[in-house]
Design a protein around this nucleic acid. Structure first.
Lengths: 123, 123
DNA sequence: CGGTATCCGTTGGGATACTG
DNA sequence: CAGTATCCCAACGGATACCG
């Protein structure tokens, strides 16, 4: 049973490090902004780029690839001319979106207090 | 009214960019892990460092300073030998914590599906 | 239009050492 | 113990160019 105990511990450590990995992937501003923006509706690459102010071509593709790998967005390419590629949130993606909505609400609720805190701190 | 309209637009743009700034501060893994860890109870600097696996001295101070500036954590230093510095979530910090809890729940709920999606993608 | 690759400056972030 | 400063390498991220 000692052996079984050890392997269970090892499983837990693997699960923890994987959970941390997922968390690290997802807990960055571009990924969360993409999730939030896609929540409203399916969007094309170029539409996403317009909606998310300040994101570069490179960051958008990079983060979309990462979100696709984790199964949070689904990519569907239409072989037309010009090409048309659409991105949609999957169910796990929608789940995450709900919590990101919470973060956005939080930002707006505490907006004033945070601004005030900054001025106090900077003085 | 044209002038008033313009200044209202300017106000909105300032508010938007400030909201984005707050979002960017907060939407990074170390900040969110600190918020989550502090949610449970007040902790000392060294305790935080132990609880948050893999965070360096530098990243911890840097993020704590940022969270303090935004009024999400409160720092209280006790002038003893050795020094004792404690960090607590403020009310805005607790508000954010609630949404981070949601992210952690989400991670555990979709853990298996994400792992599977990764294997599919990597193949 | 969307994706990939390259270049290159900027920032992130660890290690270390020193102060109160 | 907590914080600051310095050094230094790696990763981030923008600009550009080129392919399907």
């Amino acid at each position: 049973m000692v052996t079984k105990g050890r392997s269970e511990d090892a499983d837990l450590r693997r699960a923890d490090s994987l959970a941390r990995e997922i968390f690290s992937d997802v807990a960055n501003k571009w990924a969360l902004l993409i999730i939030e923006t896609l929540g409203e509706r399916t969007l094309r690459f170029s539409e996403l780029r317009k909606e998310i102010e300040g994101i570069s071509h490179k960051m958008l593709t990079q983060n979309l690839r990462m979100l696709e790998r984790n199964g949070l967005v689904e990519r569907s390419a239409h072989a037309t001319v010009p090409p048309r590629v659409e991105y949609t949130l999957t169910e796990p993606g929608q789940g995450l979106r709900a919590t990101v909505d919470g973060m956005c609400d939080w930002t707006h609720r505490y907006f004033g207090r945070i601004e005030a805190a900054r001025h106090r701190f900077d003085a």
